[in-house]
Every structure is written in structure tokens, then in C-alpha cells.
Design a protein around this nucleic acid. Structure first.
Lengths: 333, 333
DNA sequence: CTGAAAGCGCTTACAG
DNA sequence: CTGAAAGCGCTTACAG
């Protein structure tokens, strides 16, 4: 593989000079620069990243920590982040943090080995060592879609609780009183969305009924389907469902159909996230939209300013969500 | 950041010895090994990957080339590949090859800079230089989900044409004669699936009618929806639709519903891929399943054997597909 | 079993 | 503007 020495030899200059043009330094005479560029073009030379990273003490790459199995919302968010990162000239590495602690430990080791310029975390981490490491070495970090008390990192998110409250309030306004909740135990957003649900009930002077809540094990359609089955198997009836994820809501709708319950005629359903599918399902899903593109963009912009030291203060940014009414909700009959 | 020298000093040995235990070499006395391990544990030391990569001339990472916007099938395939790669101890880097040539050129440069151990390509590439580069430097490569004549790389795929033929044959068997086709122009699989469609018609002695085929611009629900609109706008009627992608089929179903056409009563629909959603849609989608998990597994296993030189011959592996009948297809009335 | 030394492919002061 | 030299953090023969 051709190295900087080969280019230097071909252009009849020293490696220092080649390095200068490689790094866009100014102090190089026009003719030498031309010769060097010519040699690079002929050989198709590209500097060895490992060597570069080693001496420059950084990698120009930012890591993205994601859950082992990501849902569609996360996938879409990941895509926009990746694209923006590329625009800023960063490489990006992928870190799957599987949910168990061993997985996270492995993730930490890779993080250390890779000497990341920065890191975007899309997935709440249990292992305290990761946070410690990131803080100790002052590695620019942004938490996307969540924040963590006690972790003074830049965070970008929506007001989960308020969004959930908005969703449930809409159901209330439509006359629903028996509103089921499909939540989950993993990560912190289910708790916040649950709080919004409870608050909404409270401010409508409705009593909280725990037989109306089911917890999905996985935040996908399968999970939503199972949770709905469970709800149906209990004696308490309901006329509306708030699922903390669109995929959960879609799974729930599938199971409702299997029980000959019509959405929205018999049961209204609201989701959360506004994934692409939400506007193509039957019926189309009423949901809360997270500002995905803006979130991704802001996460990258903030990380970049952290890396280039334009800004060293951790920010907690709350972006606005939007309530989107479609076909899966209706007035209580 | 702590380096190998620090560990050597702490343990009272030379860096060579530390390197030995780092790399699981045997020839180290038990007490020195213990001291070194202790120092590593105390400091949380992890070797610098860039330095390691530089001297060892390889990166222990395999690249995955993906389209800029990947669909659900690709996302699921990517996940399984990633997991298997991790199991083999590889890091993985992500390369988005945006569809334009400039994007691919950027991709090539990153590929070169990164000195990859191997590469898995999920996305057909236009730029001949990429293939040239991979071949010239003998970089282990596996093509997943497609093969390319003239590129002697290991490839793993299904028989696209036969699968499409199976799908259309099913429609034929149900009595359908006016079968619409929703295809696309990008990449080679649409052409192969189209060939299957045509063959099926031919062997049923049906004349091919080009007013029955529409091309989607993007392989997502939006694209399927638009293609169906176009089909509907033409004067030719049809009783069945074969869409070359589940997402296309789902989009088409949405549009059919918007026109008060019932699936499968009025129109039968078949998709392709068997994404998770296919078993949760209304109605559930009849489709062709690609053996995703097996594909991902095999791709990784093959790449690993290529890298470790256990096997240097390019293989072209055709995996079996499965036809899955669900609710979106029915006998012609 | 162990250490000193060379070298991987770069960048970055330091002289000139 | 330019080159010689040192050094980044490792690994790998080579001696012993």
C-alpha cells in the first residue's frame, strides 16, 4: 500500500512537505504542491488513518451508542445523525450496548480503545463506569432523546411528561374515561410518559386504575400486541389506549382487529414518535411527533461545538413536540 | 491517558512483556503477568487502537456499505450482521454510499484510509474504482443480497427471479389474470424480480401488458402509494398486485383502502422480504421471506473465513426463500 | 521467560 | 518555503 514516503519520493520532496499539503497548510510553493497532488492522484494515495489518529491524539470519529435492537424511531434518528456527522467531516463508529452489563463493559472498552472525539448516546446506559470515563477524560458527549440527572452532559430531548399529558388530554376531551396505558419498564422514558398519563387523569379527577396499565417487554409491535392481549384478558373494560410508542400502538391495533374491535369506533388509540408507518397504517395513527430531524441536527451541531471548544457548558435542550391527530382516535360514543 | 509504558513502569517490566500479556502470548511468568494484570485493572488501561492498527497493518474492523437511506429489510439484516461480527471480535464501521457518484468516491477514500480487514456490501455500487480497489488489494469482500457478474467476490443471495415467479404463480393459481407489478429502477433486484413476473405470465400464456407496471422512485411506503395511484389512474384494471418490496406493498394497500378497494376481496397484494411489519399489517401481508438471519450469519462466517484465509475462493451462495401466505391474497371472485 | 531496539506511517516543532 | 529529526503507542523479531 502506498505511503507518504512513496509520494514524497515521487514528487521529489520531503515527507514533511507532503504532510503539509495533505493537511492544507499554506506554506508550500505552488510547483511542489502541484507535483505532490499529481503523485497522489496517480497512485490513489489516501493517508493511513491509524497513523494519523495516533499522532494527532484524536480520531475524527464520533461514536454513536445505540441499543442492541433499535426501533424505527431510533433508526430514523440514527440516519439523520449519521448524515450530519458526515457533513462535518466526522467518521462515525457504532456501539451496540446490549442491555446487559457485560455488553456495556465491552462497549466501554471499545470506547476507550477508539479515542473518540465525541460521542452521542441514544440509549440509556446502566454502567456507571461509562459516564465516569467520559467525564474523567472530558470526552464531549451528547445525550439524545433523554437526559440524566447527575450527568452534566449536553442533552437534547422533548418534554416527555408533557407530551404524554397532551396525548391523554386529547383522549379525555373526546370523552374517554377508561383509558388504558401500554408502557414498559426499560429505560426512563416509560416512567416519564406514565407520569404524564397519571397527571392527565388526575387533573380530570379520574382515579388511577392499575388494571388499566400493561407493560410491554419489548417496544415493538409484538410487545404491543401482547400487552393488548393482557389488557383484554382482564375484567376492566376500556375505550381508549395510549401506547408509549407507535410500534406498540400498531401492535395493539392489530390485536384489537383480531378481537373484532374497531379502531376508532370501539377503541381509540394514540401512539408516540410518529414513525413513517404511522401515516400508512389502517387506520392512520394519531400520535405525538418528536422533532427527529431537528433533534439529530442539533445533537450533531452541539457535539461539534463541544469538540471544537466553542462551547464547553452542558446544555439541556428541550425541543417542542407536536400532537398529530389522524384516524385512530374518535369521540366516545 | 495511560499508555503501555505506564503499565510497564507500574509492573516493573518492559513494554514488550506488557504487550505479550495484552496479546495472550504464553511466554510470560505467572508473577509478572499477575502484576501487569493488576496494573491494567487499577488504571483501566485499554490499548490504543490506532497504534495497534498501525503496526499490525490491519484494523480488526470490517466495513459495512449501506445505502444512504436503508429500508426495514436492510436495517434488520444490518442488525444481524453487526451482532455476528461482534461475536467474531470485529469492530464494524459504517459506510453510507449515497446514491450519487461523489458520495461513492467519498466512500472509497474512507475505505482506503481505514485499512479494513474486510467488507460487506449491502448496496450495489456504481463506481468501478471501488471494486478495483478491493480487488487490487485483495480485501476480503462479501456481497450480501446481490451478486454482480464480473466481480468475483463471495456473494450471498436468494434466487430473485425464481422467488418473484413463485409469488406471481400463486396469484395465477388463485385465478388472477390482470396482475399489476410495482417495481423500480434503482439497483439490480427490481430487474430480476421483474423477469420472474414476466416468466410467470409467459408460462401461463398471458400477454405482458406494460400498462400494468409502475415504477416506484423510492422503495418505501410512499413510493408504493404513488405507484398504486399511477396504476389506478390508467385505464387498465387489475385484480392483483405484486410489489417487489413489502414496504411498497404496504403503501399500495394504504392507497387501495383510500380508494375503497378492499384487500383481498377486490385486489390481492403480494409483497417481498417479510419484514416484521408484514405480520402486523391489516390485512397481514402475503410475501416472500428472505432468510435474513441465515443470510447475515453466513455473510459474516464467510467473510471471516476469507479474512483468516481459511478459504480464498469466491463463492456464490444461493439461499432458499420461503413463500408465506397470509391474508392479503385470495381467490379471484 | 525477558528486554532493547527497530519500525509502522504519520505530524509537528525546530532550524534553516 | 522546506527538510531532518523526534515522537505518537504499539508489536515483533532478535538476542540473551
Amino acid at each position: 500500500m502506498v505511503s507518504i514516503k512513496d509520494i514524497a519520493r515521487m514528487a521529489g520532496v520531503s515527507v514533511s512537505t507532503v504532510s503539509r499539503v495533505l493537511n492544507d497548510r499554506t506554506c508550500v510553493s505552488a510547483d511542489k504542491r502541484a507535483k505532490i497532488l499529481e503523485a497522489i492522484k496517480q497512485t490513489g494515495y489516501v493517508p493511513n488513518r491509524a497513523a494519523r489518529d495516533m499522532v494527532s491524539k484524536h480520531s475524527s470519529t464520533v461514536g454513536i451508542v445505540m441499543p442492541g435492537t433499535f426501533n424505527m424511531f431510533q433508526r430514523q434518528l440514527f440516519s439523520t445523525i449519521e448524515h450530519h456527522l458526515e457533513q462535518f467531516g466526522y467518521h462515525t463508529s457504532f456501539y451496540f450496548a446490549s442491555s446487559d452489563l457485560d455488553g456495556e463493559r465491552a462497549c466501554l472498552n471499545r470506547l476507550k480503545a477508539d479515542r473518540l472525539d465525541g460521542i452521542i448516546i441514544l440509549h440509556e446506559i446502566e454502567l456507571p463506569e461509562i459516564q465516569q470515563y467520559l467525564q474523567e477524560y472530558k470526552i464531549p458527549t451528547v445525550l439524545a432523546t433523554f437526559e440524566r440527572s447527575g450527568w452534566k452532559a449536553t442533552s437534547i430531548h422533548i418534554s416527555e411528561e408533557e407530551a404524554a399529558l397532551t396525548a391523554v388530554n386529547h383522549l379525555l376531551k373526546l370523552g374517554h374515561r377508561k383509558i388504558a396505558f401500554i408502557g414498559g419498564m426499560k429505560y426512563s422514558f416509560p416512567g416519564q410518559r406514565f407520569a404524564g398519563y397519571k397527571n392527565a387523569l388526575e387533573s380530570a379527577s379520574l382515579e388511577y386504575d392499575e388494571t388499566l396499565v400493561a407493560y410491554a417487554e419489548t417496544y415493538n409491535m409484538e410487545g404491543g400486541s401482547k400487552a393488548l392481549e393482557e389488557l383484554l384478558s382482564r375484567s376492566t373494560s376500556f375505550t381508549a389506549v395510549f401506547a408509549i410508542t407507535d410500534e406498540l400502538a400498531l401492535g395493539a391495533m392489530r390485536t384489537l382487529a383480531d378481537h373484532d374491535l374497531k379502531v376508532p369506533e370501539d377503541v381509540s388509540v394514540i401512539g408516540f414518535d410518529n414513525i413513517e408507518l404511522a401515516s400508512f397504517s389502517m387506520p392512520r395513527l394519531t400520535t405525538i411527533a418528536q422533532p427527529m430531524v431537528e433533534m439529530g441536527q442539533t445533537a450533531v451541531a452541539l457535539l461539534h461545538s463541544l469538540i471544537t471548544s466553542k462551547n464547553r457548558f452542558p446544555l439541556s435542550i428541550s425541543l417542542p413536540f407536536t400532537f398529530i391527530e389522524r384516524e385512530s382516535t374518535a369521540q366516545l360514543r
